[in-house]
Amino acid sequence: MKITRRRKEKLIKNIFFLFAIVSLLILFLIVLFLFREGIPIFKEVTLWDFLFGNEWYPTYQPPSYGIWPLIVGSLIVTFFSSLIAVPIGVMSAVYISEIAPAALKEVLKSVIELLAGLPSVVLGFFGMVVLAPWLQETFDLPTGLNIVNASLILALMAVPTISSISEDALYAVPKEFKEASYALGATKYETIVRVIVPSAFSGIMTSVILGMARAIGETMVVLMVAGGAAAIPESLFDSVRPMPASIAAEMGEAPFRSGHYHALFATGIVLFFMTLIFNLVADYVSHKFREEGSGTL
């Protein structure tokens, strides 16, 4: 049978459609599975008690499945790591894209890319072996595995994300805006602060939110350096147990389809929604604050 050109076009179109649908399908199945394994926990505990219960004792008799300490742990390390990573990431992006001489620019860019490529277990190891003992001795603490340590290491992981996406956004600011600013007698710093950064604002915000999403979903680092205490922290030097750490640490121990097992999946659902919200916010912000391009006709 002779394949006509039209039939060929159609065939190619369908093949691409198939590949596109595969990833969507896989994602859908994962979510379905997550919900199927997580939902049964709500036969044992109400949604309210699950989310806001203060006690996470999944192996006690009777067990209590309150993940509030885990949520707080996740949020607190995300917050403090962002507090560190956002200024460093954004400022380094500004420096690389606008100020650094060409040679240094290339070096800095590749160093930051290298930082992004570091396996999280290596960073976690660094936090455990170098940072933790130092924190413990310097501040005379019972343990160096705590919020400060986790926030610092997570910040180290979020900086490359924030920096490289911000830098792309800054780089994309049309040359015409800069020229207009200089021609009006603005200095380099006035141009950066008043023209370039505002024009790249949506991209910078996106980078910040994606950096935070990276921090909240990161597992290995928090498992290794956050200390693992499932309690609401009272100071920055307390240990916490963020959600991913809890899931990773306990899943191997939890009997198949036990309450504990379902509770961990339900924790996964919560985490899923949190990262989803981060991504939606990032998407919204990048559209909302998108500056229209340069003077087009």
């Binding site: 049309p174 015409e176 805006f177 020229e179 207009a180 600013s181 021609a183 009006l184 024009s199 006709l297």
Partner: peptide, 15 residues
């Protein structure tokens, strides 16, 4: 540049 202003080829108002 404050005393000698400039207008460019492509209109380039700030956003």
């Amino acid at each position: 540049r404050k005393k000698i202003g400039m207008v460019f080829q492509k209109p380039n108002p700030f956003p």
